[in-house]
Write a protein that binds this DNA or RNA. Sequence first.
DNA 1: GCTCATGGGTCTACAGTGTAGACGTATACG
DNA 2: CGTATACGTCTACACTGTAGACCCATGAGC
Lengths: 209, 209
Amino acid sequence: MSGRREEILDAALDIADENGLEAVSMRALADRVGVTPMALYRHVKDKSALLDGMIGRLLTALLPARTPADQTWEERLGALGHACREVTRRHPWAAHLLFSRPAVTPDAVRAVDIVYTALIDAGVPESQVPRLERLISTFVIGFAASEASGRFTPGTLDPRSRRGQLPDDELPGHRRLAPWLDLPVDLTAEFEADLEDIRRLIRAAAARP
Amino acid sequence: MSGRREEILDAALDIADENGLEAVSMRALADRVGVTPMALYRHVKDKSALLDGMIGRLLTALLPARTPADQTWEERLGALGHACREVTRRHPWAAHLLFSRPAVTPDAVRAVDIVYTALIDAGVPESQVPRLERLISTFVIGFAASEASGRFTPGTLDPRSRRGQLPDDELPGHRRLAPWLDLPVDLTAEFEADLEDIRRLIRAAAARP
DNA sequence: GCTCATGGGTCTACAGTGTAGACGTATACG
DNA sequence: CGTATACGTCTACACTGTAGACCCATGAGC
């Protein structure tokens, strides 16, 4: 019953949001809750269990309360994808945890099920559904993690100087694409385009024997 | 000049391979090199610089010495993908770092260039190439990271018991797919199928106006 | 030969980490 | 009343990364 555990987890979320995940130490968390570090261990087995609890908390927030049945499978997929990206934009530290901790909480299973039914509704052969679910979730979480960790916007150095470290004739691709590489990237638009590509991939899979 | 830095990085790789990434502490590393912890700081600015150096070392090992020009773009893409997965299978701890550290080393840029030229050769419109490169690398690294962290094989509990935590009628997708979910997954074959799906996605992008 | 810079290494110390173990206390229930 | 149970505290230990001062061998320039 006692909502104490939830209270602690939320405090941990707050700390992570304000000062990053590495600022979540048992001592700092205890301070914020107004308690001694060791007191936390009554409500949380471990530090790693604490992290699990944190992503658990996020997952429940992410899920649609009830899946509106009047949406097409493409809309439902898009909604889930955007929700996932939204969560990791609000909590950039979370992206990594989504990868490391296997998703076995009830909420995570529910999320997987949404993708399953979307794929089935799309007409994908059942034997292919689990694989495609993994493909999709891997990409979506990967995109979110990349965005959150700055993999897509490497540092402050612009593309030109980055390229400059290598002789230009070793990088024919970069030379050829130079005009496009200097453009700023709109990651929201890019994510949308990626989702559309994935929907196409699904339709193609549904159309195959 | 002095190969001391490389010697240190390799020792760090060894520790990580044997006991996991969290076992790579400055003290443990110093012990293995046969030196005092503080001595490491002459060759490595930071602990985080040490980690950067480690993935740098891996990346050079991953890259093809020279790209054989007699391969089709599909073969080159597949080779790079498999090389990436191979590295993270040999060094499971590395997958996460690939995500967190933006890839700005010369070797990383070279790897990106291989994908760029493959996409160009495939006939993808140049404006789409950078986005698709990000899509592909995100998926490939994400797959590797998922596999390494066990996201694809959640714990020891079988699918049935995992599902058991929730009422079955809340999970129509799982119920429908039950026969397929109980099958063991061959991740090598799955990765191959995923790559093929991605190649199809590329061909489709090339065929669009 | 002398000096001097430089690269590499050592020792000490500090502030911070997760957590095991023993102990205390207040409420609820028989 | 006694006793469980939930919750919290204090102390202590073995770690972590790293700043700062000091040392010594090598080689270059005067």
